[in-house]
Computed example of a mutant assay.
Amino acid sequence: MQTEHQDLKKEFPQLAARMDVLQQSNAHFAKAFDEFNALTAEIEHIERNDAATGESVLEQMKKRRLALKDEIYQIASA
Score class of each variant (00 low, 15 high):
residue 49 N to P: 01
residue 4 E to C: 11
residue 62 K to P: 02
residue 38 A to Q: 10
residue 72 I to C: 04
residue 7 D to R: 07
residue 70 D to W: 14
residue 45 H to R: 13
residue 48 R to S: 07
residue 12 F to P: 00
residue 16 A to W: 01
residue 62 K to Q: 10
residue 20 D to G: 04
residue 21 V to I: 12
residue 36 F to M: 07
residue 32 A to Y: 06
residue 66 L to I: 14
residue 39 L to S: 01
residue 24 Q to S: 12
residue 4 E to Y: 04
residue 19 M to R: 04
residue 77 S to L: 12
residue 69 K to H: 13
residue 34 D to T: 08
residue 35 E to D: 08
residue 20 D to C: 07
residue 70 D to E: 15
residue 54 G to D: 12
residue 23 Q to G: 06
residue 30 A to R: 02
residue 46 I to R: 02
residue 1 M to E: 13
residue 71 E to T: 07
residue 53 T to L: 15
residue 3 T to I: 15
residue 14 Q to T: 00
residue 6 Q to K: 12
residue 19 M to Q: 01
residue 68 L to K: 08
residue 2 Q to Y: 14
residue 16 A to Q: 04
residue 46 I to W: 08
residue 14 Q to A: 04
residue 52 A to L: 15
residue 20 D to H: 01
residue 65 R to H: 06
residue 31 K to A: 01
residue 48 R to M: 11
residue 61 M to F: 10
residue 24 Q to A: 12
residue 51 A to I: 12
residue 46 I to K: 02
residue 30 A to P: 00
residue 30 A to Q: 01
residue 12 F to G: 00
residue 13 P to S: 03
residue 77 S to Y: 00
residue 48 R to D: 08
residue 17 A to M: 14
residue 12 F to C: 09
residue 16 A to I: 00
residue 25 S to L: 12
residue 44 E to H: 07
residue 60 Q to I: 14
residue 8 L to Q: 10
residue 17 A to Y: 03
residue 15 L to A: 05
residue 51 A to G: 08
residue 16 A to M: 00
residue 7 D to G: 04
residue 59 E to L: 13
